[in-house]
Amino acid sequence: MSRLIALALCCLSYSAWASEEHKLAKVQVRTDVQSLERGAETVISMCTGCHSLKYIKYRDLLKLGIAKEKVNSWRGSNPPGTSIPSQMSPEVAVKGFGSIPPDLSLMAQARDGRANYLYSYLLGFYVTPDGKSGNHLFPGVKMPDVLGIAGARTPEERAQIEEKARDVTSFLMWAADPHEQERKKLGYYVIGYLVLLTVLLKLMKMRIWSRLRNN
């Protein structure tokens, strides 16, 4: 058993090193509702064909600030408390891809490189010499080039797709950690309070210790 694990470690760590050769593009993740809504639109119309977002409910999208009509059109007859499902049944997925496509709720935090990885992956598709779809970050990828970056002809077309990839990344970053903005906002107050408190504690300490010098 231990030998097997060691062997697996060696093989896999080698392949991990090999894939690191492809540099990740840096993405500036957005947090405004418009970008997240555009990202959600793309994810729901394209990604949920195969992937689920089981930790995100339609209700969460409403809370995020996306218009009710839009969310209603996405959820169809599903109640607002439903998790966003994959349109593909597991059986069909296994038949088509050999495995169930991973859930996307945490995808933006689930790979080394996080948002940058996701963004670079979406833009990492290319057409191999024998006409198949390949990905620089994920050799042997089964997912098709949904954003169509490999087929982009002009710089404008490319820029458009990069924009789309950025919105998708932004939305999935939100999905992976929906409280991030709330957390950071609270963080400023907490740190501000602590700095004030610490200054006062320092003054108190100095005052108490000054007694020692007097005698």
Binding site: R183, K184, L186, G187, V190, I191, L194, V195, L197, T198, L201, K202, M204, K205, I208, W209
Partner: peptide
């Protein structure tokens, strides 16, 4: 009082990681 001040400094660093 000295531990109190040290705790303050510690909490600033710790909370920076927790929140940011």
């Amino acid at each position: 009082s000295k531990d109190g001040f040290g705790l303050g400094v510690y909490l600033i660093i710790f909370c920076w990681f927790v929140f940011f």
